[in-house]
Each structure stands twice: as structure tokens, then as C-alpha cells.
Design a protein around this nucleic acid. Structure first.
Lengths: 337, 337
DNA sequence: GTGAAAGCGCTAACAT
DNA sequence: ATGTTAGCGCTTTCAC
């Protein structure tokens, strides 16, 4: 079966292509009766417009890209659901682009977007990303970029974040209040604002509670789970080992629990844990995991909403905003008995 | 900054557009020297071809769609990584389309694909899907569809599955061998082949081990976690309650563990559990979870590879194949002490 | 109220 | 080895 085009409809109805086009777009120039006939035939032949012809002609693709480090992290998986819920409504499509935490990948992906493939971009930068030229280049081409979660402060654009500093603070304070005297912080990047903000919150909480901060209590994890386990075990075997841990990303949950198992450390009696995580199964871990739960779905929804607004040419020249949606500390067994 | 087109390059170099086009595609008709000059200028002006013009012209989009029920399930999240790894290599893009287990959504999504938006489709049907017209309609339009995981038997196309029957059998036999006398099966759909195959394996294992099968031991779960908990609790409070459970999908893990917590049932002493799951955190559950782990990444990779092959017109008229990649029973604490 | 025609950016068949 | 040109399917002036 050949693809049915607007021309086929025109022939079928003995009308011109432009009349068909206008009828389909419900133009006021076309009579009700004609519109009806066009619609009827379009349906009968199950006509669907060629998106590429429209895009080429109209200079817009109805695609938006979601550029994220990985997808098998429940924060991003849930956020995508939020994004999708919003953009689908407006007839947009979601292109998922994974950087796998690589700056090179991220640059290559954005470079591709310079020629209209997508109308806009929602992104969370890779853990390696420290500069923003690739993003600014894209924005110079009038492709709006909205950051969510992992933002780059120096780029002047809309951002949807959660209260990382306060969450880091809250997590740490909670551990202090539970009696921890020496709290370690597991990060994933020296440069990521998100990681640093959480860490600053951590430091501030220590300071406010007169607990000396030691640089060696900051441990930088990697993408390699095996390596992470080793350094966490090393951390937990030090002469003066921590009695509390704030883990700044979800995937470190497994690392910490496994390290404790191997070292036969009892959670929370010997080590209290708070993890930034959206894992649904936090409740059934043993002990259940105290989490800082990010509003993943809402962040995705907001990011998409803001992007769609930016795409609407009417709303231009608006100053860029940063929207903060708070996370929640959910206290469970890993930090308190 | 205006978008740089092939025409701009032509003007810059005093060449014709076709020369540029050919040079960029490394045609043998063009001299090495010219190619170099074109490449240099293209780079300098950071030219990127307009994908929609190419698509419109060439009748192919370099997009493939991944149609899946949800993304916040680690099987699908991991599978996407496998898919992406393969198609990225060939310059394809991945369009993620979520059905949210709704047949209506699934139909609407496929209908859209009738006009060239995507060159091919990888899909796992929704739990509501029982008929295949929407899929056949698309295939009639020469859009290849490859199934993975949740297939529709009646559609004659390539399929990548895992050994569901054998896995259901293995899970059940394992529980029998551990001494279970009454084993329940948690399904999610009456119609899904995947769910039924696993169940048939379960039934066969019971029969082979002379354990009477009771229809009431089959419990159909839904998309509503709260409801699921209730029916599982009901199951576990029956006069003759099961001493083993085979849960056929990942999201039921939380359900079962929570139900046991609430009822103060001790796993595995009072109830042994095997769950179909790719959750990395299975190891740190308490007790750690015995799983049937599907080869999610490999299935994604294979599905993508097969689709790309089908997209390559040279390989046409090949008979459709079904590829089975086995799952693995990983025995952990939830089924044995 | 309807139609003719130009053109979005690219490719390829067909000149030269 | 390079250039000319038609056309992919659609939208949008502009004309009738």
C-alpha cells in the first residue's frame, strides 16, 4: 500500500492540495461542507501527514530531546514519565539521548541538534561536564534548552532543580541528631553543581553542629560499581571509621549495603545511612532505607512545561527562571531504630 | 545565527550544491582536493545537515521507535540501553513511546507511524493488547516491527524472547525442591503470552512433581500497587496458605515483601519467593531475592540488530525468526537458607 | 471559497 | 569532475 498524501486526497475529492491542507488545519477560508468531506475521506484512507514535510516546511519538528546521563536510574526513569505526560498532550515526541556520563557524547549529541532535529532540549548534564560551549552554541541557534536536576550554573536558561543544599543539610542534621559523630559524604563528581550543593549542605550542617569537617570524609565514587565498593570498604575500615554516611546518588545504595554486609557492619547500630534515592524498594530493604526523595515526576513535568512555554514564540524575552521543587527526607530504618 | 545549509557552503566555495552534497557523502565522482575543501568549510561553519530534508527526500528517517509499556521497570530501562548501544552506532535515533499498559495508547502511537516518522519499531505490547490489527496495518506499510519480550504470537515477524516457559518451570521446580508444597503464581495479564508461558511452565513443574494445581493459586495483579498488596495479603491469609510464590514481574517484588512484613511472615522459613526481576538491588534485600533474571541488555541489543538488518533492504524476504535468549535463575536468600 | 505556485534543504538522475 | 534541475509532501502567500 502506498502512503496516502495530501495530493491523493486532492485527487479523490477533485480539490486542490491547498484546499485540502487548509481544510485539515481547519482554516476559516474553507467552507464547513468541504471540511467535512475532506475529513471524511482523510479518515477513510487513514491519511496521516508526513511529519518530515511539515517539519521541513514549517521549521519545527515537534520533537524534543531529553538528554540524560542514563536511564536505568529511577530518578531519570520517573522524570521521563513526567516529561512524556506533558509533551504528549501537545503532540510532541520525546527523543531519548543518553550521554552515559561522557562529555564527548554529550557534545556530539548536542551538535546534532543544530539543524532542527528537535525544537527544544531538556537536559541533565553528564558528570564530566564542566564547560558549556556546546550548550551555548545550541542556544545561539535558537534551540531552547531547559535544565533539570543537574544544571550548569553559568548557563543563563530555565532550570528546574530540587533543594540540594537544604537536602544535604537535612540528611546530615538528621544523622547528627541520631548521634553520629563522624559522617562521610559519598559524591560522584567534583564539578557537578548538584553534588557540590548537597555537599555544601552537608558541610554546613556539620559546622552548625560543631562537628569537625575532615576532607578525607568526602569520598568520590565512579561509574564502576566494583571500584566503588572497594573505596567504600576502605572508608569503613579506617581506624577512625565514620558512623554515618550521606550517599548523594541512588546507585550508591547497593554499594553501601553490600560493603556493610561484607564488613559485617550492622545498619543502623554501627553505621547510619541516608541516601538520595527514588527507589521504590527503599521500603523493603533491610533495614529499610532512609532517603532524600526527589520529586522526579514533578521535576520532569515542570521542565517540560517550561520548555513548551519557551517554544511558544509568544512567551519570548521572558527572563530565565530557576524553579526549586523540594525533596523530602523520609526517615526509615537505616538511620534510626 | 542563521542555520548553515548546503547552499551556504556552495556559495562560500563557489561550487554547486550537488558537488557539495556529493563531497559530503564521499562520492567517487568528486576529487580528493574538493572533498577536503568542502569538509574544511563545513567544519568551520559547523554545518549539520537538516535531517528533515534528508528524510523527506530519501524516504527514511533514521529514527526507530521503542514502544514499551513503561520505563520505570528495570527490564525496559536496561533493554533500552542495549537498543541504544546498537542503533546509535548506525546513526539512528531512538524515539521512546510509552503505552502505560493501555491498548488505546498503543494503537494511537502506531497509527502515527504510518507516515514515515520512524523507519522501524521495536515493541513490547501492553498488558491489554489482545489483537494485532494495529500492528499489521503498520507492517502493511512496510514499516518493520520487531517484538521483544512481550510478543504477540499471531503476528508473523521477528521476535526476541527469553525462555519464559522454562524459567517458570525452573522457578517452580526450585521451590518444590526446597520443600514447598503449595505454590502460588502471581500474573499480570490473562492474555499476555509472556505471562501465560511462565504460568504454563509453573503448571508443568507442579504436575511433574505431583503437586496438585489449584486455580485459586493463580492471582492476577494489576497496575495498582495498593490493590495488589491487598490481594496478595488475602492470598497469604487463606486457611491453606501457600508456602511458595512465583512472581512473574519485577514490580511485584515490593508487593510481596510488604505483604509479608505486614503479616509478619518470615521469608524464606514461612514463605519462599522467586521473582522475575532485573533489579540490581535484589542482592541487598532482606533476605536477598532469588530471581529469574532476564537478559535485558542482550535482548535489547538483539532486537535492535534484527531490526537494523530488516531495515537494510538487501536482507529482504528473509523468513521471520524467533530468537530465544535464556534467563538465569539466581538463587538467593528468599528461597533458601 | 478555492486554486496555482513557490519554496523549505536535500539528493540523484542527468547533463556538461 | 562539476553543474543543473526535478521533486520528496507540505504550508502559505497571492491570485482568482
Amino acid at each position: 500500500m502506498k502512503n496516502v498524501t495530501i495530493r491523493a486526497l486532492a485527487k479523490e475529492l477533485n480539490l486542490s492540495v491547498s484546499t485540502i491542507s487548509k481544510a485539515l488545519r481547519d482554516s476559516y477560508e474553507i467552507s464547513e461542507e468541504t471540511k467535512q468531506r475532506v475529513l471524511e475521506v482523510a479518515n477513510r484512507l487513514s491519511y496521516t501527514p508526513n511529519p518530515y514535510a511539515s517539519s521541513l516546511r514549517g521549521k519545527k519538528s515537534k520533537n524534543i530531546a531529553v538528554v540524560i546521563p542514563e536511564i536505568a536510574d529511577s530518578f531519570f526513569a520517573i522524570a521521563i514519565n513526567g516529561i512524556e505526560a506533558v509533551v504528549k498532550e501537545k503532540g510532541y515526541h520525546v527523543l531519548i539521548c543518553l550521554t552515559h556520563e561522557s562529555f564527548e557524547n554529550e557534545k556530539a549529541i548536542l551538535r546534532e541538534f543544530g539543524s532542527g532535529r528537535v525544537d527544544g532540549v531538556l537536559m541533565s548534564v553528564s558528570s564530566e561536564t564542566t564547560s558549556c560551549e556546546h550548550i551555548c552554541d545550541l542556544m545561539d541557534k535558537e534551540v531552547p534548552v531547559v535544565f533539570f536536576d543537574r544544571v550548569l550554573d553559568e548557563v543563563d536558561t530555565d532550570k528546574i532543580v530540587t533543594n540540594d543544599f537544604e537536602s544535604g543539610y537535612a540528611a546530615t542534621r538528621h544523622l547528627v541528631e541520631k548521634g553520629c559523630k563522624k559522617i562521610a559524604y559519598l559524591g560522584i563528581s567534583k564539578s557537578l553543581a548538584i553534588s557540590n550543593n548537597r555537599m555544601e549542605g552537608y558541610k554546613k550542617a556539620l559546622a552548625d553542629h560543631h562537628i569537625p569537617f575532615e576532607a578525607s570524609d568526602i569520598v568520590l565514587c565512579t561509574n564502576d560499581p566494583a571500584y566503588n565498593i572497594e573505596i567504600v570498604k576502605e572508608l569503613l575500615q579506617r581506624k577512625k571509621r565514620p558512623d554515618g554516611i550521606v550517599a548523594s546518588v541512588e546507585k550508591l545504595t547497593t554499594t553501601v549495603y553490600l560493603a556493610c554486609n561484607e564488613l559485617q557492619l550492622v545498619i543502623p547500630q554501627q553505621l547510619r545511612i541516608v541516601c538520595f534515592s527514588n527507589l521504590e524498594i527503599a521500603t523493603i530493604l533491610h533495614p529499610s532505607l532512609t532517603t532524600i526523595t526527589q520529586p522526579a515526576f514533578e521535576m520532569g513535568k515542570s521542565a517540560a512545561t517550561v520548555l513548551l512555554k519557551a517554544l511558544d514564540k509568544k512567551n519570548n524575552g521572558q527572563p530565565k527562571k530557576q524553579l526549586v521543587i523540594p525533596s523530602t527526607l523520609i526517615i526509615r530504618g537505616s538511620s534510626s531504630i
